[in-house]
Design a protein around this nucleic acid. Structure first.
Lengths: 307, 307
DNA sequence: ATGAAAGCGCTAACAT
DNA sequence: ATGTTAGCGCTTTCAT
C-alpha cells in the first residue's frame, strides 16, 4: 500500500506529539507473534547463567525481541509450569536449561510447536521421543572434565578427587572423570568422589568429606568454578599449599575465578557466546525459517595458578 | 454465575485431556492486565543485580506474575526505549534501576500511569516533577559509605582513598566519603579519589592510579565489592599487606566477597530482600491498591579480614 | 443454567 | 490513495 510522504510525515508527527505507543499485546494476538523469548534457567544468581542471560537478552534486544525469564532451581514442577506459562503467553521461542535429573520423565508436550533450544544441558534419548526439531547449544562437558582430569595427571597427580553435581548420562562431568581414570588405568575410588550440586557449599562440604577419609589427595577436579571456590576455601583454612600439595581445576571461567588466591586454573565455557548463539539460532528460525541444530562450543583451558 | 459440579468436572477433564492452555495474551488484552512485571537494570551480570533479580522473580512467581527484563548498561537511550516497550507490552508494573547520570533530563512520560518502583537508586528532584506516585526501595548508600569511611578512620587510617562510580547527587557514595572527611576535619585530596564505574576494572585502574601519585595511602573505601576485588588484586600483585599496610572496605556483600584473600570486609545491602520488597510493593499496589512508598533498608557492616 | 454477542487494539483483506 | 471491516481468544454483559 502506497502512502504519500506528506501523510507519512503528518502521521509521524501526531504519533510523536500525542505520545501514542502501539499496543503489542493486541498486535501479538492478531499476528500470533509476540516478539518475546522465554528463558528457563536454574538460577540467575549463578554467574555462569547470568552471563548466558546477558548474551540472550543483548541478542534478543538487537532483534527487537524481549525476554521473560524464570528460575527453576532445577525443580521439574516449576519448569513444567513455566513451559505452560510460556505457551499461554505465546512466546515465539524458548531457550532453556532443563532440570538435571529426572529428565527421563520429561513432558515437553506443553511447548506444542513453539520452537526451542536447549542450552548447557543435553536432552537424553527418552525425552527426545515425540519431539519435533529443536536446537541445542552446549559444550561437551564430559570431554571438558576428561581433559581437566588428564591435565591433573600430566601435572603429576595420582590421587585425584572429583567434586561435582549429579547430572544425566550424556556429557556428565562425572563420566568424564571416570573415563580419564579408565584410560589411565587407575582404579576408581568411591571415597574420592563427592556428588551434590553446583554450588560453593558443595565444594566446601565435598572437600572436607574427602579430606576426612583420604589424606593423600593431590588433585581435585571441580564440576564448576563455584565448587572450586569452596574447595580453595577449605584448602586455605587447612593451610594446604596450592598447587604444591593439591592441585585444583575448575570449570566455566566465571569472572571471579580470575581473582581467587591462587588464581584458579579452569576450563572455560564461552557463556556469553552460547547465550548469543541460542538467541540467534532461535530468532533466525522464527524469522527466516532457518533450521534449528545442535551447536557445540569448544572448551578451552585457562592456565592460572592452581594447576 | 453458577455451574454445577458435574459440568465443572467435565470441563476440567476435557481441558486436561486436550492439553488446552488458555491464552493470556487475549486475556491480557481484554482485561488490560498482563500479569507481567518489567525489570530494567544496568547489568544482570553484576552479582548485586542478579541477586535483586532473583528476589523479584521469586516473589513475582509466587503471585503468578512473570517478569521481563532488560539490561541498559546505564544507557539513557536504551532505558527510554525499554520504558516504551514495557508500555507497549502492557506490563502491570515496572521495577527499575535508572541510569546513574543524566537523570535530570529524565523523561518518564512513556510510563504513563503504569505503577513503578525505583530500586537501588534514587530519583532526583527535577525528574520527580510531573510524576505520579511511585515506590522506592533502597539503602542510603551515602550513609553507608560515610560509615565505611568512619570505620577506616577508627581503625587508624589517615590517608583514605575512595574509588567508586559517578552517581547523581542524592545518596551518592562519593558524597558520603566527602562528609566523613569533613566531619573528621581532614582536608580533601583530589588525588585520593578515582571515579568511574562499578566494575573490577575500575578498582584495578583506580588503585594503580592512586598508588602512582600517593604512596602513603593506608585505607581504601570502595563503591562496591567488584571495585574492591580489583583493588585487592592490585594490592596482592604489589605485595602490599592487607590490612597492615592498607585497609580495604567494600560494599554490597556479594557472595564472592566472602572468598577473597584476605576475606573482604564490606557493607552489606540486602539485595534479595530489596528485590522481594520491590515486587511485593508493586503487586500489592496492583492487586489491592495499597500505596507505593519509599522503603529504606538498613545497611550493615560485615567484619572480615580487610579492615 | 446456558448461549449469544460485544469489544479489548491491532492487522490484513477488501471496497471504494 | 484512503476507508471499512472481520477476527485473533478472551471476558463480561445481556438474553434466553
Amino acid at each position: 500500500m502506497h502512502i504519500s510522504e506528506a501523510t507519512r510525515c503528518r502521521v509521524r508527527n501526531i504519533i510523536n506529539e500525542s505520545g501514542y505507543i502501539s499496543n503489542s499485546i493486541a498486535r501479538g494476538l492478531k499476528l500470533r507473534k509476540t516478539y518475546t523469548l522465554g528463558f528457563i534457567l536454574p538460577d540467575i544468581t549463578n554467574p555462569y547463567f547470568s552471563e548466558i542471560a546477558r548474551g540472550i537478552e543483548d541478542t534478543a534486544r538487537h532483534h527487537q525481541y524481549s525476554v521473560i525469564f524464570c528460575n527453576t532451581d532445577d525443580t521439574l514442577n516449576i519448569e513444567q509450569r513455566t513451559l505452560e506459562l510460556f505457551k499461554s503467553k505465546m512466546v515465539d521461542g524458548i531457550i532453556f536449561s532443563h532440570v538435571l535429573s529426572g529428565a527421563e520423565k520429561y513432558d515437553l508436550s506443553s511447548v506444542g510447536d513453539t520452537p526451542f533450544v536447549i542450552i548447557d544441558r543435553c536432552m537424553n534419548q527418552e525425552a527426545k521421543r515425540n519431539l519435533g526439531a529443536y536446537g541445542e547449544v552446549y559444550v561437551n562437558t564430559a570431554e571438558a572434565i576428561y581433559d581437566a582430569t588428564m591435565r591433573l595427571f600430566q601435572s603429576g597427580c595420582r590421587n585425584i578427587a572429583c567434586i561435582t553435581a549429579v547430572e544425566g548420562e550424556k556429557y556428565s562431568r562425572y563420566n568424564g572423570y571416570r573415563k580419564a581414570l579408565t584410560d589411565k588405568n587407575i582404579v576408581y575410588a568411591e571415597e574420592l568422589v563427592y556428588l551434590n550440586e553446583f554450588s560453593v557449599k558443595t565444594g566446601v562440604d565435598g572437600m572436607k568429606a574427602i579430606l576426612n577419609v583420604r589424606t593423600d589427595v593431590d588433585g581435585v577436579v571441580c564440576g564448576n568454578d563455584l565448587i572450586a571456590i569452596g574447595v580453595l576455601d577449605v584448602l586455605r583454612e587447612r593451610q594446604i599449599a596450592i598447587p604444591e600439595q593439591i592441585r585444583v581445576i575448575g570449570m566455566d571461567n566465571i569472572l571471579f575465578s580470575n581473582f581467587t588466591v591462587p588464581r584458579l586454573s579452569t576450563i572455560a565455557q564461552p557463556a556469553y557466546e552460547m547465550g548469543k548463539a541460542a538467541a540467534d539460532m532461535l530468532i533466525n528460525h522464527i524469522e527466516y525459517h532457518m533450521p534449528l541444530y545442535a551447536k557445540t562450543f569448544a572448551h578451552s583451558y585457562v592456565a592460572r595458578e592452581t594447576v
